[in-house]
């Protein structure tokens, strides 16, 4: 068993932070949405792809000690809610730092990293993580 098309399908979003902007109210959504929760049917067909800058600040974070199998080499890792400059908030790791360096409000920027891999023979799943600016 393995994940394949589900990973491939999301690659523009996970590789390049391609968000969806509502053509009706201008709100920006990441993760992308096909319908704007504010405009509802008025947004149908008006959601447009847009690339985000990958810059933002830490809204909140945790240092994860009880980690899923894919993250054992990184224990403990910092997982944060990051508010991007364009508006949306996402969940991602903050890497290449000691947990003690991380604080609410700190500026971060996105980097391209391996997130998971499907066993030893399956595909490698890449995506965004963040580093302190």
């Amino acid at each position: 068993m393995g994940e394949l098309s589900s990973v491939w399908r999301e690659s523009s979003h996970r590789y390049r932070l391609v968000a969806h902007g509502c053509g009706n109210c201008k709100a920006v959504y990441f993760p992308p949405r096909d319908i704007c929760p504010k405009c509802h049917r008025d947004s149908i067909g008006k959601m447009k792809e847009m690339e985000l800058s990958g810059r933002g600040k830490i809204e909140s974070f945790t240092v994860v000690h009880d980690v899923p199998p894919a993250f054992i080499r990184q224990r403990p890792y910092v997982l944060a809610l990051i508010r991007l400059d364009e508006g949306p908030t996402l969940t991602a790791q903050v890497v290449d730092c000691d947990p003690s360096e991380v604080a609410l409000g700190k500026r971060v920027r996105s980097v391209f990293r391996r997130v998971r891999e499907d066993g030893k023979s399956g595909i490698i799943q890449y995506g965004y993580k963040f580093v302190l600016e």
Binding site: P31, S60, F61, T62, V64, D66, V67, P68, F71, Y77, L79, A80, L81, L90, T91, A92, Q93, L104, V115, R116, Q125, G127, Y128, K129
Partner: peptide, 18 residues
């Protein structure tokens, strides 16, 4: 968008807690 990137139920609760 949460679990894939390292989210666990405890981690998400901890983010709220902090």
């Amino acid at each position: 968008w949460e679990t894939f990137f390292g989210g666990t139920p405890a981690a998400m609760a901890a983010i709220s807690a902090r």
